[in-house]
Simulated scan of single mutants.
Amino acid sequence: MNVDEVLEAVERVLLFRQLSPVERLILRRSWLGDDYREMARDSAYSLPYLKEVGSHLWQALSAALNQRVTKKNLHLLVNLHQQNRTGEQQNRAQEVQTDTGVEDNFIASETETEQKFPGGPVPLDSPLYINRPPIEELACTEITQPGCLLRIKAPKQMGKSSLLIRILARATDVGYKTVSLDFQEADETVFASLDKFLRWFCANVSRQLNLNPLMDEFWDEDMGSKVSCKIYFEGYLFKQVNSPLVLALNEVNRVFEHPKIALDFLPMLRFWHEQARAVEVWQNLRLLVVHSTEVYIPLKLNQSPFNVGISIGLPQFSSKQVQDLAQRYGLDWSDKIETQNGTSCGNDYTSLLMAMVGGHPYLVSVALYHLRRGAMTLEELLQVAPTPA
């Protein structure tokens, strides 16, 4: 087995979950024979943290294989398990062919996927999350950089929120505090003025950090709302939080709808990011800005937060990723598709589905959900998909 096959086997067969970026790094490098010092030297992770995560990973694999797993015997045990599993699958296939004489388009899901309609972010422990390398590893590494600014832009239902919760999980793993604000939750009255908006902003950050909002003690009308907000972070929040703070701002495009607010708030974020170069305390702030639409606010180049930091776009799934997701749903798409009259249509399942919906993550997931339930065949789904039904 090569290292990619090992990663797939561990996620889909042994642990039934997506490995975190640091777990994937440890497993990959361990399989290649590297020690923790070499991993720490070549990554943003500290040596103690790698050892701690590695220890938990070996324990999880030990429980799955019912044998003690270490870095030294990893090759032997994984290869042995794969050989045993291959033999069992061949025996089951022979039994099914003997009993039915036909092949079933659906195979038993290794992950026992729960049949829930796709909607909202893919849960952190779900086997249905598809990595889009190198996006996840880049984002989870960048969030450890002092004063970083990550910008995630993609159309709706492309996986922004699913990626966001994985970045926040990475931040939590390394001991950071995290706050996630979704501007869709803000009442319209919040956008009545910049002062009201920034007080709402600070109150929400405080509550998520389990701190009492103390804006009245730091707010100064003469100094203005933006300076008061800055002082609130410096004089209160940063002092109460003895670790880096990851501030995720989701659906920032809601702010775009209020130009008067946006023209002050967005340059403020840019200023905070630049403060990290000169003021040490601001290095503790890691900003995540997520939006789904283009920025039409007329910001000056030196005031915009959208031309600094790291920009991450989310591409559509490739055909290989669509096929991978189909397998995780428990669908066998290894053969050519046949029409109802029994003749081959000359295309594979993946190509036919992508001809209809491309690699759009949500639309692909909805199609696979219906196919896995057995409600219709792919041929029927493709006929119905573009109709009101």
Rank of each mutant, 00 (worst) to 15 (best):
265 F>E: 04
254 R>F: 04
258 H>M: 03
268 M>E: 03
227 V>M: 12
224 G>D: 03
282 W>A: 09
205 V>P: 01
247 L>T: 06
294 E>C: 00
272 W>Q: 06
277 R>I: 13
274 E>W: 02
206 S>N: 10
256 F>C: 04
303 Q>G: 06
273 H>N: 04
206 S>Y: 07
288 L>C: 13
208 Q>W: 12
304 S>L: 02
197 F>A: 01
258 H>I: 03
262 A>W: 01
204 N>I: 12
218 F>P: 09
241 V>L: 08
199 R>I: 15
297 I>Y: 01
292 S>Q: 14
217 E>D: 10
191 F>P: 00
288 L>K: 09
258 H>R: 15
220 D>M: 10
257 E>N: 04
257 E>S: 11
221 E>P: 04
273 H>C: 07
225 S>L: 07
212 N>F: 11
249 L>A: 05
295 V>E: 08
237 L>D: 06
285 L>W: 04
303 Q>C: 02
193 S>F: 11
291 H>Q: 10
221 E>S: 05
244 P>R: 03
260 K>H: 11
232 Y>G: 10
277 R>D: 14
218 F>C: 13
271 F>L: 13
230 K>L: 10
239 K>D: 12
262 A>R: 06
252 V>L: 14
300 K>V: 08
264 D>A: 02
241 V>S: 11
297 I>S: 03
288 L>Q: 05
250 N>A: 09
269 L>G: 07
207 R>S: 12
208 Q>G: 07
258 H>G: 01
251 E>A: 08
265 F>N: 00
206 S>Q: 11
230 K>Q: 14
244 P>K: 01
303 Q>F: 04
304 S>M: 10
282 W>F: 14
301 L>F: 08
210 N>Q: 14
281 V>H: 02
205 V>L: 13
222 D>M: 13
257 E>W: 01
247 L>K: 03
264 D>H: 05
223 M>P: 00
207 R>A: 14
207 R>K: 15
270 R>Q: 08
271 F>H: 05
304 S>G: 02
264 D>P: 01
189 T>K: 09
295 V>N: 15
290 V>E: 00
207 R>F: 10
251 E>G: 00
209 L>H: 10
252 V>Y: 00
242 N>H: 15
226 K>A: 15
259 P>M: 01
281 V>C: 09
251 E>R: 00
292 S>G: 12
294 E>R: 07
288 L>W: 01
210 N>R: 12
191 F>I: 02
285 L>E: 07
238 F>C: 06
265 F>W: 04
225 S>G: 08
196 K>E: 13
287 L>W: 02
250 N>H: 12
304 S>I: 03
271 F>A: 15
238 F>I: 12
190 V>E: 02
249 L>Y: 02
301 L>C: 03
206 S>I: 14
213 P>T: 08
209 L>D: 08
279 V>K: 15
204 N>S: 13
261 I>E: 06
226 K>P: 10
204 N>C: 05
214 L>K: 15
285 L>V: 08
285 L>S: 09
275 Q>P: 03
272 W>I: 12
227 V>N: 06
254 R>D: 00
212 N>T: 15
233 F>R: 05
205 V>C: 07
226 K>N: 08
249 L>K: 08
303 Q>T: 09
264 D>S: 09
269 L>R: 05
261 I>W: 01
219 W>L: 14
207 R>Y: 13
213 P>D: 10
263 L>P: 05
271 F>M: 11
258 H>F: 06
